[in-house]
């Protein structure tokens, strides 16, 4: 059986290099047959694509997509320097 560290590394590389994602900031953890994805992206479509690419890179694992969509809030007050 492949060590989970290698599986997680393969998923992370796929997320960075796949044309559908190019996401560098996703944290990937493998525990048994469970794959956990954490991080932030700009919209729901990108969030779903990350789960697709991760699932293809690690077939047979159950993908838990815990990535959140960044909410761009109104700018706040300024900081005086």
């Amino acid at each position: 059986m492949e060590a989970p560290q290698y599986v997680a590394a393969r998923v992370q590389s796929a997320l960075a290099e796949d044309d559908r994602t190019h996401e560098l900031g996703v944290r990937v953890d493998v525990r048994g047959d469970q794959l956990f994805l954490r991080g932030q992206v700009g919209c729901e479509e990108r969030r779903e694509l990350i789960a697709d690419v991760a699932g293809e890179a690690a077939p047979g694992l159950v993908v838990h997509n815990e990535i959140s969509v960044v909410d761009v809030r109104e700018p706040g007050g300024e900081e005086r320097l």
Binding site: G25, D71, V72, E74, G76, E79, L81
Partner: peptide
């Protein structure tokens, strides 16, 4: 970086 700010932009007064 937008995910760090969590808002559309930061404003810094010089």
């Amino acid at each position: 970086a937008l995910p760090v700010l969590g808002r559309a932009y930061g404003v810094y007064c010089l």
